[in-house]
Computed example of a mutant assay.
Amino acid sequence: MRLRKKWWARPELEKSTAFISEAKSMKGKWQEEFKNSNDIYLELGCGRGGFVSKAALKYPDKNFVAVDLKDEVLIYVLKKIQEEELENIRITAMNIMGISEVFDKGEVKRIYINFCNPWPKDRHKKRRLTHTKFLSYYKEFIEKGTEIWFKTDDDELFEESLDYFRESGFALKYLTRDLQSEDFKENIVTEYEAKFKAEGVKIKFLVAELIEPKE
C-alpha cells in the first residue's frame, strides 16, 4: 500500500521520547534507554503498531523495539503508544538491512516478523526478512537460544522460509500451517491476521530457535 507523504510526521515523532531518531547510536545502550534490565523484544516491520502495542500491554515486564521504514507508518504506532500510555516501547525508522548496527550481541532476546512482504519474484527473494541474507544480519546480535517468531499468510514464503531457517542454523521449535486451529496461548492477533481470518485464509506460524550462532 502506497502511503501519502506526511511532512509533519517526523517533527511529530521527534517530540516523543518513544521515538529513536538515530538508532545506531543506541547500540549497547538499550537497557539504559529503558531504565531497566528487562528482556528486549524486537519487531521488524511493525506497520501501524497493532501487534507491538498489544504485546507491550500483555507483557509489561518486557521492553519492545519496533522498526519500520516510513515515518508515515510509525506515526500511527506513536498514537497507540500515547493512547495506552506505554512506557515499554521504542520505535525507529530505518532500513532493516542495517539492523545489525543497532544492537550489541545478546541485547535482543526475541524477534517478531509478522506478515512481511513475500517478494514472490525470484530476483527479489533476497529482500525477504526471513531470507538467509537477513538471518545472517540477525545472527550478528542474537545469541544461541534466541527465538524468531514468524507469521504469514503466504504459502510459498512460509515453505521457503523453513529452508532459510534450517540453512542458517535454526531449529524449528513450533510450526503450524493453520494457526487458527491451534491452541497457541501466546498468540497476539495482528490487524492483518484478523483480516485474513475473516476471509478464511489460513495463517502459517513458526518459532525458530538459533542453535548455531555466528562464529
Rank of each mutant, 00 (worst) to 15 (best):
F134K: 03
K58N: 07
L78A: 07
C46G: 06
D178F: 02
E85C: 02
E32Q: 15
V73L: 06
D39F: 03
L44C: 13
F150L: 05
K133D: 13
L172N: 05
V73F: 05
E193F: 09
R90Q: 07
K105S: 12
Y192H: 04
M94L: 15
K125E: 15
E101W: 01
K58Q: 11
I211F: 00
A194P: 01
R123W: 04
G28T: 11
F150S: 06
L78E: 11
L13Y: 03
K24F: 15
I20Y: 01
S16T: 08
K24T: 15
W8C: 02
E32W: 04
I188A: 11
S25N: 13
D71H: 15
P213D: 05
S181D: 05
K173P: 02
Y112N: 03
E212M: 10
T92S: 14
E22W: 06
F141H: 07
F64H: 06
A9L: 03
I96K: 00
F64W: 06
E191V: 05
E193N: 05
E186C: 06
E159N: 13
V189H: 07
V73R: 11
K125H: 11
R4S: 13
G200I: 01
L135P: 07
K185F: 08
G47M: 07
T17K: 12
A23P: 14
T92A: 12
A18M: 04
E14A: 09
Y41N: 09
E140Q: 14
D155R: 11
E87N: 12
L42K: 04
E182T: 08
L86M: 10
I75A: 09
D104C: 10
Y41H: 14
L129V: 15
T146N: 04
L206P: 10
I91R: 00
E32V: 08
K58S: 10
A23V: 12
K5A: 10
L3D: 07
K214I: 12
N114R: 01
E160R: 12
S37T: 11
L162P: 03
K15V: 03
E182K: 14
F196G: 05
K35G: 07
D183N: 15
E101F: 06
E156D: 13
I91E: 01
E212N: 13
D104N: 14
E191L: 03
T17N: 11
T92M: 01
